[in-house]
Simulated assay, not measured.
Amino acid sequence: MKIIRNGSRKTMIGAEELFSGRVLIDPLLFKPAEPSRVTCALVTFEPGSRTAWHRHPSGQILIVTSGHGIVQEWGKEPQEIFPGDVVWIPPDSKHWHGAAPHAMMTHIAIQEAVDGRSVEWMEKVGDDQNPAD
């Protein structure tokens, strides 16, 4: 058993090429030991901030813990998400997620690595694609 104490890991700022706006990432696990492939993080989005388009080879689970957010799969309408909502994003589904325009949003993101990779990043979400106002 291993206990990872709150505050024992350094908060990271989301990379500008992967996120629009300010995003704080708190890893919740150390690099998983085989055979585990699960990674997860507590991710906080400032109002209107969001991920770039991306996909996960084994899919992704988002558990909204606070605020008001938006998630969208490629070719589908954006969906609002709120505390307590659990979002399942299927494997290889191109999508983005982030905070609503006038609210922060925090979620726990859980995904599995396949061949050492848990995410494939793509282009940023265009302002015309994001319901920012």
Rank of each mutant, 00 (worst) to 15 (best):
E17P: 02
L18N: 13
L18E: 04
F19V: 04
F19A: 05
S20K: 06
S20P: 00
R22G: 01
V23R: 06
V23S: 05
V23C: 06
L24Y: 13
I25H: 04
P27A: 07
P27Q: 07
L28F: 08
L28G: 06
L29N: 10
K31A: 07
K31R: 07
P32N: 02
P32C: 00
E34G: 00
P35Y: 00
S36L: 02
V38A: 01
T39D: 03
L42C: 12
L42A: 13
V43R: 03
V43H: 08
T44M: 11
T44R: 14
T44E: 13
P47T: 05
G48S: 06
R50P: 07
T51I: 06
T51W: 10
A52S: 13
A52M: 05
H54F: 04
R55I: 00
P57E: 01
G59Y: 02
G59T: 01
I61E: 08
I61P: 02
V64A: 12
V64C: 13
T65S: 13
S66G: 12
S66A: 13
S66R: 13
H68Q: 15
H68K: 15
G69M: 13
G69H: 05
G69L: 10
I70T: 11
I70C: 03
G75Y: 02
K76N: 11
P78I: 06
Q79V: 15
E80Y: 12
F82I: 06
F82Y: 15
P83A: 09
P83E: 07
G84D: 08
G84H: 08
G84E: 05
V87R: 01
V87I: 15
W88Y: 06
I89T: 10
P90T: 03
P91Q: 03
P91G: 04
S93V: 11
K94L: 14
K94Q: 14
G98P: 11
G98C: 12
A100M: 08
A103T: 06
H107K: 11
